[in-house]
Amino acid sequence: MVFLARGGQGAKSATEILAQAGVLEGKFVKAFPDFGPERSGAPIKTYLRISQKEIRTSEPIKNPDVLVVLDETILKSDEILKNIISNKDGIILINSKKSPREIISKTTGLNGKIYTIDASGLAMKIIGKPNPNVVILGYLIKITEIVKISNVIKVFEGIFNEKIGEELTKKNILAMEKAYDSI
């Protein structure tokens, strides 16, 4: 999987949460950002491999099975897209109010089955903050079944109860579940 986002949107946390949930299920994982100086707002890329077998490679992922786009304006950047050959059998999930058809008409070189969800909007409504990552996680798990949502929630609580408090954690999980159930 490749996540495209802007610094501060929680792409790194999202991949790490999925990785931790994968390990809870006895899977092998490797999650790492495309290492650049991390600055709020700058385009970033994170990678995640999940497998039943040991993962040895540390190559960046160039033809992901799943491409997740947390900020659609990134699709305008040739620089960040140029190293991703999108996989025609793959899945592309975009945080956008637009329909998949609208997105395709404006972006060249995107192949695969495209899904869109207004993750920022849903997050704003439920959490009160436009952080799209939890909504995207919920939706992503529903369409890929890569890990169980119960394990993702468990990992999320483990990390965030302490960090942001139980109330906000609950709201985040609610947003994740809403997205999961929206299909």
Binding site: T15, A19, F35
Partner: peptide
């Protein structure tokens, strides 16, 4: 640096 220090693995 990063390739191991910042990569989440099992």
């Amino acid at each position: 640096g990063f390739h191991t220090s910042h990569t989440v693995e099992r």
